[in-house]
Amino acid sequence: MSLLEVRGAVGGYGEADILHGADLTVAAGQVVVVIGPNGAGKSTLLKAVAGLVPLRAGRVVFDGSDITNRPAEELVGRGLAYVPQERNVFPSLTVEENLAMGAFVRPSATAAGLERVYALLPDLLPRRRVPAGSLSGGQRQMLAIGRALMLEPRLVMLDEPTAGLSPRFCAMIFGKIREIAASGAAVLMVEQNARPALAVADRGVVLAMGRNRAEDTGAALLANPEIGRLFLGG
């Protein structure tokens, strides 16, 4: 049974639909990456699952329950975590205060959450007392991911987690994504850095103009010459 199923998603912003019947399936422990050109609806699809963009048609089912258009705060309690591409940390708060915000719906879980996150992301530990605004871009992204993991979510959604980062931090983040999946959580990410993302993904989905163009294993999409020509830069 799939952990997440999106079927026939139609929706967008205001009166404009960005998604035109998109489908998506994620199993527990899987890494699934959504790729495609700018404006394809990739981030909109993630936000629809996270309860941040309303759908006018279609269904989102999580662990057998219909969560279509449910409030974002409810979905956090159900075990979904979403990390936006931008403005994903509180710059005036310390690293540890940012992490604690990830457990705001269950404060009693803060201590255990901090222990797990520091074990996964040890570079954050010596910086726990410094303001998040003083971190590098890669360190901020690690912090945002760490905050999302504070309540042991069953599904972690990442919107462009390596955007604008150095190759070193890109490789580090993709490695951590595999570690998160190995712990049992599913990871759904949108990425423009498509080739390395597909290399760590169990499955990939190609969106174009709000519709599915292809879906296969990450390795198969990387080996597909048409996908390479149209969506991976040759």
Rank of each mutant, 00 (worst) to 15 (best):
G41T: 00
A28I: 02
I173V: 09
A197Y: 06
G133E: 06
P71A: 00
L222D: 07
R229K: 07
A197M: 06
M1H: 14
L222A: 01
E160A: 10
V31T: 09
L143Y: 12
R147V: 05
A185S: 12
L143W: 09
L149Y: 09
V49M: 08
V76S: 10
S2D: 15
A132G: 11
N193R: 00
E86G: 12
G218P: 03
P131L: 02
A197D: 12
F62L: 11
G41A: 03
P107F: 04
A194M: 09
E96Q: 12
L121G: 02
K176E: 15
T68H: 11
A199C: 13
E5D: 07
E86F: 04
L143D: 14
L75K: 15
M157R: 06
V105A: 13
N88F: 06
T162E: 10
A181E: 15
I173G: 01
E215W: 04
A40V: 03
N193L: 05
A27C: 11
L93D: 01
E115P: 07
L230V: 14
E86H: 14
L143C: 07
T68A: 07
I177V: 15
A103K: 10
G210M: 00
L99S: 07
A40F: 04
V187M: 09
N69C: 10
A50R: 05
A112I: 08
D123G: 06
V60T: 07
R211K: 10
A50P: 03
T162V: 12
P167N: 08
P196S: 12
G79N: 10
G36P: 09
A111G: 11
A109K: 11
L114A: 06
R129F: 14
T44S: 09
D66C: 01
S108K: 14
R147N: 02
A186H: 03
D216L: 00
V33M: 05
M172P: 07
G233V: 04
V105P: 08
L52E: 01
A27P: 10
R128I: 00
D159Y: 08
A22N: 03
V76Q: 04
L198I: 12
I67F: 06
S134N: 03
G233S: 00
P71Q: 01
N88G: 12
L155K: 02
N224I: 02
I67K: 12
L4S: 05
A100G: 10
A194Q: 04
G11K: 08
L80D: 04
Q141I: 01
A171N: 14
E226D: 14
